[in-house]
């Protein structure tokens, strides 16, 4: 299956390796009779940064949540780093080790300090020693520029700081791909930038990223490819230049008209 990305005549602004990290083929999902994902075909290459946008209820969050199986799909196949998700729990474990996720509501563990939040998965999933886990945690907390908050509890931090901790917590598992599910939607406006800057830093280091976001500025400056979803379908995918200046479908134009005019 050829993605729109391959056929578009606008050259990619940045060379992306041919290695496919995520492949979704014929993925379908229903909530009872509601068809949330309709025949999703998607390939994500190593180092690629993808922004997924679309109206609420279009299935964009559900799509990325299927990749690490927080939501189960009913049809089609999802392959991450060569491992196809099936009933075998080991495959799912492997996929989850390779895929980091950042949530809209941060979902930090409130009973653990910041550094303990970051140490938990390396220790309990990978079996890393406590000292090593702490070193890893401090390294990534420094990278999101809040090492001085390590011994505080999440409740003592601002929203932006909490989200940066959540990013660091994911990075401690050394993921191959990062999924962002509306990471700035729950933040006060003045905190959006610090989180976006952290994400831009990650992108510059070559992280493969899928971001569901309404931050069109981020999409324009960082994304290699923008995917527009509506009613459970991928309606259009293109480079940001193409997507914002010359959207092909009517639905995309309507959507852009609504979000860019205010």
């Amino acid at each position: 299956m050829a993605s729109a990305y391959d056929t578009t005549d606008v050259p990619a602004p940045r060379p992306v390796s041919g290695e496919v990290v995520i492949r979704m083929a014929g993925v379908q999902k229903w909530y009872d009779s509601f068809h949330v994902l309709k025949d999703i075909e998607l390939e994500v290459h190593k180092g690629e940064r993808i922004v997924i946008c679309g109206p609420s209820g279009s299935g964009k969050s559900t799509l990325i949540r299927c990749i690490n199986q927080l939501e189960k799909h009913q049809k089609g196949t999802i392959t991450v780093n060569g491992v196809t998700i099936d009933a075998n729990h080991r495959h799912l474990d492997q996929v989850r080790r390779d895929v980091g996720m950042v949530f809209q509501q941060f979902n930090l563990f409130p009973h653990l300090t910041v550094v303990e939040n970051c140490m938990l998965a390396p220790m309990r999933v990978r079996g890393t020693s406590k000292q090593e886990a702490r070193d890893i945690a401090m390294k990534y907390l420094a990278r999101v520029r809040i090492p001085e908050q390590a011994d505080k509890y999440p409740g003592q931090l601002s929203g932006g700081q909490q989200q940066r901790v959540a990013i660091a917590r994911s990075l401690c598992m050394n993921p191959k791909v990062m999924l962002f599910d509306e990471p700035t939607s729950a933040l006060d406006p003045e905190m959006v930038k610090e989180v976006l800057d952290t994400m831009i830093g990650l992108a510059e280091d070559g992280m493969t990223m899928l971001c569901v976001t309404h931050e069109m500025g981020f999409a324009k400056s960082v994304a290699d490819r923008v995917i527009f979803m509506d009613r459970g379908e991928i309606v259009e995918q293109a480079t940001p230049a193409e997507f914002f200046t010359n959207p092909r479908s009517e639905r995309t134009r309507n959507f852009l008209g609504q979000i860019l005019t205010h």
């Binding site: 980091g100 949530f103 563990f109 938990l120 998965a121 999933v125 598992m173």
Partner: peptide, 27 residues
């Protein structure tokens, strides 16, 4: 315990026993 706690722990790769012991039950 909010659903997001289960999701975050699962996404980090914790399986049921660890998820319960280190994340859900303490809360």
């Amino acid at each position: 315990v909010p659903r997001g706690q289960w999701e975050a722990a699962s996404a980090l790769g914790l399986r049921y026993p660890g998820l319960m012991r280190y994340v859900i039950l303490p809360q």
